[in-house]
């Protein structure tokens, strides 16, 4: 929840009290989520739905940021993990009649196995290919979802998946929001742990300079592989949250458009900071809702945003704003 959690690098040996301050910040973050959820649930069902969506997409975007922002692997097939988890969990409960506690882990496992297969192929190639090959592989899954109607329901997808029962059924929009908020908080904390671990540090090194990492003794492809498995796991969690939100999964959960959207969310924040990806997801969902209420040309607007970001803010919106702000402050300082 707090950008300062991201500020590695500036750490000097801290006195004891900072450990406590970190706990305080963490508590503040959790309290923030609780407040937002509470506020939303008093406002009626539309804001609740919107916030639930924001949290799910934020989780999804953060998982992609592990690859794009931290490891420097631009993936355009991230919807594959989101969709596979949702389809697998849905199939488990529909065809095999498994309960939530079995279906959900199976779905996550399916996402991780998909990531393993994809990356054993995609990581063999040079970095420039990664975007292209992940796109091609994800497109294959989408195509199977559309054409294998017996299994996947084709374009109609799979519907009628009941929400999990935790103590009581999570049927109401507000009670499901609580569930998603909990899942989000736990996942986000886990991801923060990952990026601040020795492993996360190694990922940043690979992003910055892979040959040097190899010269230092890192078998870099192993790190890239594990990073993609972890990213797939969290993307899968987001996918299942989405599945139980709608009680439905269709080919759009595997589509390139979704991969492109989540990549744009990462860019609309700041690649390489989980917090930024979260903000990006929130901005994206709100923007999409506003634009769609005025025009049908959302796809065009999204394309235009991509073009603008590529030209002017390839590192993301937050770094761009920070730079503007610094320049503005300098010019003001220079005048006085």
């Amino acid at each position: 929840m707090n950008p300062h959690l991201e500020a590695t690098g500036t750490r000097v040996r801290r006195p004891l009290w900072t450990d406590r301050s970190r706990t305080i910040r963490l508590l503040a973050a959790v309290a923030g989520i609780v407040l937002v959820v509470l506020a939303a649930s008093t406002l009626g069902s539309y804001p609740v739905e919107l916030i639930t969506q924001v949290l799910i997409y934020a989780l999804f975007a953060m998982s992609l940021d592990l690859l794009v922002g931290y490891t420097g692997l631009p993936s355009l097939g991230h919807s594959a993990y989101f969709g596979v988890a949702a389809y697998a969990a849905a199939l488990c409960s529909l065809k095999l009649g498994l309960p939530f506690w079995c279906a959900a882990p199976v779905g996550l496992l399916a996402a991780v196995v998909t990531a393993l297969l994809f990356n054993l192929i995609a990581l063999r190639t040079a970095r420039g290919y990664y975007l292209m090959i992940t796109l091609a592989l994800a497109q294959v899954l989408w195509s199977i979802a559309v054409s294998w109607t017996d299994l996947t329901g084709g374009d109609n997808g799979l519907s009628g998946i009941a929400r999990p029962v935790i103590g009581r059924p999570l049927e109401g929009a507000a009670s499901y929001l609580w569930f998603v908020a909990l899942v989000f908080t736990v996942s986000a904390m886990a991801m923060w742990r990952i990026v601040r671990s020795p492993f996360g540090q190694a990922l940043k090194g690979i992003r910055e300079n892979e040959p040097r990492m190899r010269a230092l003794g890192y078998e870099t492809w192993r790190y890239k592989l594990v990073a993609s498995l972890l990213a797939a796991l969290f993307a899968g969690i987001a996918g299942e949250c989405f599945l139980y939100l709608n009680g439905f999964v269709g080919p759009s959960s595997l589509a390139v458009a979704l991969s492109a959207q989540v990549l744009l969310m990462v860019l609309m924040g700041a690649a390489g900071t989980l917090f930024g990806s979260m903000i990006g997801a929130a901005v994206f969902v709100v923007l999409q809702n506003i634009v769609s209420s005025y025009t049908d040309r959302w796809l065009f607007v999204m394309g235009a945003i991509y073009v603008l970001f590529a030209l002017y803010a390839p590192a993301g919106a937050l770094p761009w704003l920070r730079e503007r702000w610094a320049r503005y402050r300098n010019s003001v300082g220079g005048n006085t």
Binding site: P74, G303, A304, Y306, A310, L311
Partner: peptide
């Protein structure tokens, strides 16, 4: 990467 993202943007604009 920015080049790929740029062309991706054009892909969406042209598609729409």
């Amino acid at each position: 990467l920015p080049q790929s993202l740029l062309t991706l943007g054009f892909l969406f604009m042209f598609a729409d």
